[in-house]
Design a protein around this nucleic acid. Structure first.
Length: 827
DNA sequence: GAGCACTGC
């Protein structure tokens, strides 16, 4: 018996295409998921033109043995590059770069009326530090920041001890408080407090452009509080794109307020809420505020919402801005009508929302959008010509240097630049941005080889890599100071762009590339590709050189190439129509939406409550009907985190053996359940031995190491599990186990993931039924060698070929039986 | 018989 997808099928996980997706010329949606690519031209203009050539010093390329830095062991890349530079016949040429003496960040040309407004404001403003963003000269470098003086940069913040008892400690704390007062007063934003509050009172929406070190993130919420924006128990909410920022800034502000964290100032992020009823200044992740808006569509407890780091353009921030615009509108209608809601509002959903709030006092919502030095005008346009103000920052100046010619091999160019800096520039550490682990490792080897050939009297080079999958102990090496007479070279992915700040960096090398996820809506396939960085990223990277003193940034590309195309950047763009329609279609197939695209009740509403991929949310609802929700909760939690299995290259055989004990011949899902249960058992054991929580975690950590399980991922999965469990219990779903009935569980997986089914073909390959694509089982699957006739899967990725991952063997008959809306038997 | 940048709920 054969199967075919019903008419109208043939779609895959379009839900993954974010509103920010770019479509390339070959139909691929590019998803630089974390940060948008402002100069969208890179990804939309089709194939990227050859990369700028970076002139290489002859010493690194000669093979005649005369120069100090020669040496074998080049990577394939470096060798290829050498051929290229030989061709240019540049032996003996002096290596130099074009020098720019000022920061080259600039705004796109402001509109005439914004310019006029700017002039008017400037006249009024006089010498104050506040002015319209659009009026900002291209290359302002405001007052220098004294080292270790930034109260604004979250990652720089010292942690202050809470008030203690001893006299010395009290004295110490008093000194701390004095220091904090001084620091606050010296921030650029301090001098414009009154003016800023005035603008907030006058405008419902205000764009604040603040450079690094201006103090906007920590100070503005305190100004608002002092100005009375928290009267009637209202809250000021400040969103951040990253968890760590929300936590560290909240801690700092609580300290500045001389208050305990969780009282007046608190933070709220997933799995970690430190707010109370007394909290008036609340820092949170943008995604969390989105979740809150589901429960309270008017966000009625907030008087002001500050969206910080809006220039980073995460999907969450983008959606949040659109949502806040709507909330603002609803609340102003409500406030204007004095609580009397008439059903003459066009948007029906708005009417019901307002109706539900009748009787409570709701004021208009103040919205402040804070962004680093990017284009404020786009935010302003999006919010109906909202006013924009600019606050100067305190960053040391950074010289930006570009290459004269295009470079075809950025890895080689990076190597060359590192040695040029090392041999010609003064002391200071180097930070080089690369795209991934493999590049970092190979460049590391190359540097070591060349460094060994330096004359003995030269100072030494010490390389230290940092990327997210590197164990934290090894990550910490990058933060250690280099020994005397040694220059530290940090080889980093974009983790060092925003997530971590490495002290001592004076030189930044930016090859201008980044690894990004690409999503193809036609095939539903994801892959990782290397694309040029955005202007925002380049700016952020160069800023890393000016945190402790004047620095230099070497950009290994020409100034004029795509990356400066800020004018062409389309802010707040919509996803493609096809992508929207396809995702709606999938949501309908999952039963989340009705045929007229409304959220279905109860399934759609229940799914929306769960912080999961829609397919996983649906799986939980299906599982409660199949009476195996306990197992499905585990599966969904384990699938929602990074890879659970850890297999270091040097211990591959041991890792494989360790995994054997968890393996189920039915597939990966049940294998994951086995791992989770074994981990729980380990925790139970130490709990029964009356161990403290810390000891229990240690035991789990050890167990993970012994079994080649990634502790971080497992811990995360446990957190997700308890959170989701709470949700499903609240929803009234019945959490029961199917015990040993694995057929029932596999049938349940089939009913839940029917969109992701693959059938074995006569030639031994597989065909994904929804898209008719030819796929292979990924070698990491326990079914890799088992070759089942039919399986459901949870991931479809394209690397060296098309792979499906996370599979479970199913009976093909179940598809038509359990998903008759999608599959029909052929007979 | 394969490799994976970074985030968030």
């Amino acid at each position: 018996m054969g199967f075919k997808a019903r008419e109208g099928g043939g779609l895959l996980d379009f839900l993954h295409a974010p509103p920010s997706a770019h479509i390339t010329s070959d139909g691929c949606v590019l998803r630089p998921s974390h940060r948008r690519c402002p100069s969208g031209g890179h990804s939309t203009n089709g194939p990227y033109s050859p990369f700028p050539i970076f002139p290489s010093p002859p010493s690194l390329h000669e093979r005649d043995g005369k120069t100090a830095a020669r040496g074998g062991g080049e990577t394939h890349r470096a060798a290829a590059s050498r051929r290229g530079s030989d061709h240019h016949g540049r032996a003996g040429a002096r290596y130099e770069v074009k020098r720019r003496l000022r920061r080259s960040s600039s705004y796109s040309s402001p509109s005439p009326d914004l310019q006029a407004e700017a002039k008017a404001l400037r006249r009024k403003e006089g010498a104050s530090g506040l002015r319209l963003a659009s009026d900002r000269p291209a290359a302002t470098v405001a007052g220098f920041r004294r080292a270790r003086d930034s109260a604004a940069a979250a990652s720089d913040m010292p942690s202050f001890p809470s008030s203690g008892a001893s006299p010395q400690k009290q004295q110490h704390n008093a000194r701390r408080r004095q220091l904090i007062r001084q620091q606050r007063k010296s921030l650029p934003i301090a001098s414009v407090e009154k003016r800023l509050i005035e603008e907030v009172r006058k405008n419902d929406t205000l764009i604040v452009v603040g450079e690094t070190g201006s103090g906007k993130t920590t100070q503005l919420p305190q100004f608002l509080y002092d100005a009375g924006f928290c009267q009637d128990g209202k809250v000021i909410g400040i969103t951040q794109p990253r968890r760590v920022a929300a936590v560290t800034v909240a801690k700092r502000v609580a300290e500045e307020c001389n208050d305990q964290l969780g009282k007046k100032v608190g933070y709220s992020i997933r799995f970690d809420d430190s707010t109370s009823n007394a909290t008036r200044i609340k820092y949170m992740t943008d995604g969390l505020l989105l979740r809150e808006a589901l429960l309270d569509p008017l966000l009625s407890k907030y008087s002001v919402i500050v969206v910080d780091e809006a220039h980073e353009r995460t999907v969450h921030t983008d959606v949040l801005l659109g949502l806040l615009k709507k909330v603002q509108h609803s609340r102003s209608i409500y406030a204007n009508k004095n609580g009397k809601i008439l059903p003459d509002i066009q948007d029906q959903s708005q009417y019901f929302t307002l109706k539900a709030c009748q009787g409570t006092k709701i004021d208009p919502l103040k919205l402040i959008i804070m962004s680093a030095s990017l284009d404020a005008k786009c935010f302003s346009d999006y919010f109906g010509s909202a006013k924009a103000v600019h606050i100067q920052g305190r960053q040391y100046p950074v010289d930006i240097l570009y290459t004269y010619q295009p470079e075809s091999d950025y890895l080689d160019a990076t190597l060359v630049t590192i040695f040029q800096i090392h041999l010609e520039e003064g002391p200071g550490d180097i930070l080089a941005f690369l795209t991934g682990q493999e590049e970092i490792e190979s460049l590391d080897r190359l540097i070591q080889e060349r460094a060994r050939q330096l004359p003995p009297q030269r100072s030494k080079i010490w390389t230290t890599p940092i990327y997210s999958s590197l164990p934290s102990e090894q990550q910490m090496n990058a933060f250690k100071p280099a020994p005397a007479g040694t220059r530290k070279v940090v080889l980093a992915t974009n983790i060092a762009e925003t997530s971590v700040t490495i002290p001592g960096i004076k030189y930044v090398i930016d090859p201008g590339m980044v690894k990004a996820r690409a999503y193809n809506p036609v095939t539903g396939m994801e892959s990782l590709i290397i694309i040029p960085v955005s202007k925002a990223q380049a700016l952020q990277r160069s800023g890393r050189a000016g945190r402790e003193g004047p620095g230099k940034c070497y950009r290994l590309f020409q100034e004029t190439l795509g990356i400066d195309d800020i004018i062409g950047f389309d802010f707040m763009e919509k996803p493609s129509r096809t992508a929207i329609l396809k995702s709606l279609e999938q949501l309908i197939l999952l039963g989340a939406l009705t045929d007229d695209y409304k959220l279905s009740d109860p399934v759609g509403r229940q799914m929306a409550r769960l912080p999961l991929d829609p397919m996983y949310s649906k799986a939980l609802i299906v599982a409660s009907e199949f009476k195996c929700l306990e197992e499905m909760l585990i599966v969904v939690s384990m699938l929602s985190v990074e890879s659970i299995f850890f297999s270091p290259r040097e211990k591959l055989e041991e890792a494989r053996a360790a995994r054997k004990s968890f393996e189920s011949s039915e597939g990966d899902h049940i294998t994951l359940v086995n791992v989770y249960r074994a981990a729980k058992e380990c925790l139970e054991k130490s709990k029964n031995a009356n161990a403290k929580e810390k000891t229990m975690e240690k035991a789990l950590n050890r167990w993970c190491r012994e079994n080649f399980i990634n502790y971080r991922s497992l811990r995360h999965a446990c957190d997700v599990h308890s959170q989701i469990q709470g949700h499903v219990q609240q929803m009234g779903l019945n959490v029961s186990s199917c015990g040993d009935d694995m057929v029932l569980f596999r049938r349940c997986l089939t009913a839940a993931f029917f969109l992701n089914a693959a059938m074995r073909q006569p030639d031994g390959s597989y065909r994904a039924l929804a898209t008719s694509q030819s796929v292979q089982i990924h070698p990491s699957s326990v079914l890799f060698q088992k070759k089942p006739d039919c399986a459901i899967f949870n991931e479809l990725v394209r690397t060296s070929q098309n792979y499906v991952k996370d599979l479970t063997r199913i009976d093909p008959v179940w598809l038509a039986e359990l998903a008759p809306q999608y599959y029909a038997t052929e007979d």
